[in-house]
Simulated assay, not measured.
Amino acid sequence: MTLRLGTRRSALATTQSTWVADRLRVLGHDVELVEITTEGDLDRTTPLATMGGTGVFVSALRDALRDGRVDLAVHSLKDLPTTPEIDLVVAAIPPREDPRDALVARDGLTLGELPTGSTVGTGSPRRRAQLEALGLGLEIRELRGNVDTRLARVTSGDLDAVVLAHAGLRRLGREAAVTEVIDPIQMLPAPGQGALAVEVRADDTATRDALAALDDADTRACVDAERAVLAELEAGCSAPVGALAEIVLGDEGDELSLRAVVASPDGSGDLRRSATGSPAHADAVGRGLARLLLEDGAADLVPVDSLSASAVSTPTTPPAPSNTERPGA
């Protein structure tokens, strides 16, 4: 049986899907790539936040799964809405590429070396908010288009710099263009950034079994924690929320270390907190950290339609065995 793999048509999406297909072929499966055009691919000028966030890249692929045109679909995990789909399941999350953001700037400059007033392009409210919060006097410009289109804005002199996901640049072989990989202390990435999600129909046990070998437990735990922060904040994919989880060696073995930030859209303020816990309780660790952020004032940093303060008094998940930290604690 040939597995039909649904992919967006962009160079990055095709590269990511081919990577998954090649690993399935090594396992003995026949795989055919099926190109699917999404709303986000057709409209490359409207800001993603206006179109409804990065979920605009997902719906057409999910429609193709549901109507049987494809058997599996590969998404950039950060594009997936946090609300679960009853009839679909993420059957595999392969090992993650570098989750950090990267700067591509003229003359090999880093963020700290860009002169005041330099123009920096990004289509992400999260990146915009954290760049503004750094107080470097940069002028942030809206940015859309595929990776090469964005890079061309710098080489043409239209922009002084752009910020992109390091993972995408690495997958496309464009790492030589990177002038700085941005430290998460300055800019926390989007929840799930750098990871892929392979989605299938929940009742398709044969395809789920075929994908089981591609799933990486550590990556799944990390992205589950990060996405739990986003889900508990009820922020949606386009809200200025960053999160990064890592598996580290603790006193009693593997430990999940999670950091998150909520920033005001104009960069006038941000709130950063951290938590640790067991990888087995990744979702609860993330939700607990989100509640700490809300208790400490996260809802005051963004519009009321982006964060729900009700989560402070009505937690949706019982507390997990974890340790949440405020700076200086």
Rank of each mutant, 00 (worst) to 15 (best):
A195S: 14
A195R: 02
A195N: 10
L196E: 14
A197Y: 08
E199R: 03
E199Y: 00
E199A: 05
E199V: 15
V200Y: 07
R201C: 08
A202H: 15
A202G: 02
A202R: 15
D203R: 09
D203E: 15
D203F: 05
D203Y: 05
D204K: 01
D204A: 09
T205M: 03
T205C: 00
A206P: 12
T207S: 00
T207G: 01
T207N: 01
R208M: 13
R208C: 09
D209N: 13
A210W: 02
A210Y: 01
L211C: 06
L211D: 03
L211K: 04
A212K: 12
A212G: 09
A212T: 14
A213L: 08
A213T: 14
A213W: 00
A213Q: 13
L214D: 09
L214R: 10
L214Y: 08
D215V: 05
D215K: 01
D216M: 12
D216L: 08
D216I: 07
D216N: 13
D216V: 06
A217Y: 00
A217N: 12
A217R: 15
D218Y: 00
T219M: 03
T219N: 07
T219V: 10
R220M: 12
A221Q: 07
A221V: 08
A221H: 05
A221G: 10
C222Y: 04
C222V: 04
V223D: 04
V223I: 06
D224K: 06
D224T: 15
D224V: 14
A225R: 11
R227I: 10
R227V: 06
R227Q: 15
A228E: 13
V229M: 09
A231T: 12
A231Q: 11
A231W: 07
E232S: 04
E232T: 15
E232V: 02
L233F: 09
L233Q: 11
L233S: 02
L233E: 13
L233C: 08
L233G: 03
E234P: 03
A235N: 07
A235I: 07
A235Y: 02
G236T: 10
G236P: 04
G236V: 10
C237N: 14
C237D: 14
S238G: 03
S238E: 15
S238Q: 09
P240Y: 07
P240M: 05
V241W: 02
V241P: 08
G242F: 02
A243C: 10
A243R: 11
L244I: 13
L244Q: 14
L244T: 12
A245I: 13
A245M: 11
A245K: 12
